[in-house]
Design a protein around this nucleic acid. Structure first.
Length: 275
DNA sequence: ACGAGCGCCTGTCGGC
DNA sequence: TGCCGACAGGCGCTCG
C-alpha cells in the first residue's frame, strides 16, 4: 500500500495512537519474533533478536517511503514495498497469517509488520545514513523549492514518469501519485524532463505537492484487498480510470505501460512534447 | 545515462 | 466449480 501519503498516515497513527490502538512511542521492545527470514535486510536474525531487546522506541519518523524508528541506541528502518501494514494490537491475539515480524512491547501490546507479498524489508542499524542518504529530496520539505526542482529536473534526458518514481530523484512518489501529479500538471508521462519549460516544471512541482497533501488529508488511498481506511481513491482523476471520461474534457482515459508500470493519462489534456 | 526485462511473493478478478 | 492469465501502491539486478 505504500506511497508517501499512506506511509505518513500509518506513521501518525503509530506515533500518536488512535481510538483503537495506543502510541508505541516510549515503549520498550521486550522481544522480536521473525516469521520470514528474508524480511531482515540487516543484520542476521540472531544479531537482530539480541540487539533489539530492551530498546525503547523514541519516535516514529518518515523519510520517503521508509519508516524510521529511532531507538535508545540504534535505528530501526522499515519499508513496506508493495503490500503490508504496521499494526498495534493486543499480544494475545492469534497471529495473522501475513505477520512477518512481531515486536512484543510492554503492557501486553505488540507491534506487527504485516506483509502479504513478502517484499518488505527491515533494517536495524547504528547509522541510517547509508540507506536514507541515497534518497532524493522530500517533496513536502519547506526548504525544497521550485527552483531546486527545476535544477534537478532540467538536466535529465529521461521520461517524466520513471524519473518521478525514481527515489534517488525525489523521495515518496509511486505509481498512483505520479500519474495523478502528471494529470494535474497536464504533462504526458513519457515527455522528456529536459524539454519542460520553467513554467511547466513549476506546475509539476505544485501538482506533486498538492496531490501528496490531499492524499495525506484523506488518510491515503485504499484499494484492492489491502484496505487501510483512507479514501483518496475516491478522488483519483486518472489512476485505474481506463476508458472512463476525463473529468476535464471527457476524453476516455488511456492506459499504457511506461517503465514496466501501468500508466494512466488523458490523451487530450496531456500532450506529448518530446523535443 | 537510460530503458527493457526479470525476479521476488501472495492474492484478487474476469473469462472460459 | 476449477483453471489460467492478467494484474497489483516497489525496487534491485542484469544487460544492451
Amino acid at each position: 500500500m505504500p506511497e508517501l501519503p499512506e506511509i505518513e498516515t500509518i506513521r501518525l497513527r503509530l506515533r500518536n495512537g488512535d481510538h483503537e490502538s495506543p502510541s508505541i512511542v516510549g515503549r520498550k521492545i521486550l522481544s522480536a519474533r521473525l516469521f520470514w527470514n528474508r524480511t531482515l535486510a540487516y543484520p542476521t536474525p540472531d544479531e537482530f533478536q539480541n540487539q533489539i531487546q530492551g530498546e525503547i522506541i523514541q519516535d516514529v519518523l518518515r523519510r520517503g517511503k521508509f519508516f524510521v524508528f529511532p531507538l535508545s541506541t540504534k535505528y530501526l528502518l522499515i519499508h513496506l514495498r508493495m503490500s503490508g501494514d504496521l499494526i498495534v494490537e493486543d499480544d494475545s491475539y492469534k497471529v495473522h497469517k501475513h505477520h512477518r515480524l512481531i515486536f512484543s512491547l510492554s503492557d501486553g501490546i505488540r507491534f506487527a509488520f504485516n506483509n502479504p507479498r513478502k517484499f518488505g524489508r527491515v533494517w536495524l542499524l547504528d547509522d541510517p545514513k547509508p540507506i536514507l542518504g541515497e534518497l532524493g529530496p522530500e517533496p513536502l520539505d519547506p526548504d525544497f523549492t521550485k527552483e531546486d526542482f527545476y535544477g534537478r529536473l532540467h538536466p535529465r534526458r529521461r521520461q517524466l514518469k520513471p524519473l518521478l518514481m525514481d527515489q534517488h530523484f525525489l523521495a515518496g512518489l509511486g505509481n498512483i501519485y505520479t500519474d495523478e501529479s502528471l494529470f494535474r500538471a497536464r504533462l504526458h508521462p513519457v515527455s522528456l524532463a529536459s524539454t519542460l519549460t520553467r513554467l511547466e516544471s513549476e506546475n509539476l512541482f505544485e501538482a506533486i505537492r498538492d496531490v501528496l497533501r490531499q492524499g495525506i488529508l484523506r488518510n491515503g488511498a485504499s484499494i484492492d484487498w489491502v484496505y487501510r481506511g483512507g479514501d483518496f481513491q475516491n478522488y483519483f482523476f486518472v489512476y485505474r480510470r481506463t476508458g472512463e471520461p476525463c473529468y476535464r474534457c471527457g476524453t476516455p482515459i488511456k492506459r499504457i505501460i511506461v517503465g514496466q508500470r501501468s500508466t494512466h493519462f488523458c490523451p487530450n489534456c496531456q500532450r506529448l512534447s518530446r523535443d
